[in-house]
Amino acid sequence: MASEKVQTITDANFDTTINGGKPVLVDFWAEWCGPCKRLAPTVDELATDYDGKVVVGKLNVDDNPNTAFKFSIRGIPTLLLFKGGQVVEQVVGLADKDSLKKVIDKHVA
């Protein structure tokens, strides 16, 4: 179960979300991806930890292929961190919370 702090990002709301002012962490995932499920609780925790500072959202690549295609996502889970609408970090595959926090903290004062 995704935490309520985690937004659902779609092809339709993607642009407005990443240009919303705050940094945005996007988790590209799919139902059939085991490692994505493994990463999900960590993403939930990050949404709570960075509440108010970073927008955390999940994008289902099955339902929203255009955005995944636009960023040449060919493997999931992939996390992209956007700042000012631009990709500033990417993490491919599983990662633990501490290393993800280090990545995010580089861009969040």
């Binding site: 799919a30 059939w32 991806c33 085991g34 490692p35 994505c36 040449s72 996502i73 060919r74 493997g75 999931i76 992939t78 990417q90 491919v92 595959g93």
Partner: peptide, 17 residues
Amino acid sequence: LLGHGVSTCATCDGYFF
């Protein structure tokens, strides 16, 4: 290119191809 065409997990990423 990891995650952009290079993969170590066929069951995860086969779908994209």
